[in-house]
């Protein structure tokens, strides 16, 4: 069971290594969205610092859904997904491996680039650390929930837009507490622990249920 996890994880990482541009596209999309906001709402420092937490998260949500489209579709198009369903391994485990690979390639880079956002929006150093931490807790949830949507919309016309429409509302809890934690860290004397606990709870719950639901959705979609 574990071996199936490693085989799929290694395969997806190897594939990404051969097509590095896809990873960078998502990252640059994130940076572009982040840089557009000051141009739209004005460059006043107070406003920027105030809206930064929300912007970081909305950009992360958008970048994450953008990347989701490719999570299963390339395997679907060349028939390898069908073969995964026919291997004598648990589909949930292999799906989990694919989601982990996807997060390593699209979620983790967002966490690592976060300090740059902090500089652009004049966020204090302590809050940048909090931002990285909540992104680390929250982006896996985005990948997990998003995978269900990606599996459901597999191979549909206009699947990408439909996928965003389906999953973005489901991201709201992560958005609310992810952005809330960063704002709280900038306010004086507010504990961010409850935010972190809630985000961790979301992560654990999504780790338990999402691979299973995604596997069920894939079986439906591939019929």
């Amino acid at each position: 069971m574990l071996s199936a996890f490693w085989i799929v994880l290694k395969r997806d990482l190897l594939l990404a290594l051969r097509r590095r541009n896809e990873v960078f596209t998502v990252l640059f999309f994130f940076i572009v969205v982040i840089s557009l906001f000051p141009l739209g709402v004005g460059v006043e420092e107070k406003i920027l610092t105030k809206i930064a937490p929300g912007i970081v998260w909305i950009a992360a949500l958008l970048a994450s859904t953008l990347a989701l489209d490719r999570l299963f579709s390339s395997d679907f198009e060349d028939g390898t997904l069908e073969q995964l369903l026919l291997t004598p391994h648990s589909l949930s485990v292999m799906v989990f491996a694919k989601i982990v690979a996807h997060w390593l390639l699209t979620g983790l880079p967002l966490v690592l680039i976060a300090p740059l956002v902090g500089l652009l929006y004049q966020i204090p150093v302590d809050s940048i650390a909090v931002m990285m931490l909540v992104l680390l807790l929250g982006t896996p949830v985005l990948s997990m929930i998003g995978a269900i949507g990606a599996a459901l919309t597999l191979g549909l016309r206009g699947g990408g837009v439909l996928l965003s429409f389906l999953v973005l509302p489901l991201y709201i809890p992560v958005l609310v507490y992810g952005a809330g934690a960063i704002s709280a860290s900038m306010a004086q004397g507010v504990s961010i622990q409850p935010y972190l606990l809630l985000l961790s709870a979301f992560m654990i719950l999504s780790l338990i249920f999402a691979p299973w639901a995604t596997a069920a959705a894939l079986k439906i979609s591939i019929e």
């Binding site: 489901l170 507490y177 809330g180 709280a184 249920f209």
Partner: peptide, 16 residues
């Protein structure tokens, strides 16, 4: 599964 969590998040954006 997610709607109750959304409901909670919207009603209680500040868990403190």
């Amino acid at each position: 599964a997610i709607v109750p969590v959304i409901y909670f998040a919207v009603n209680c954006p500040d868990p403190n």
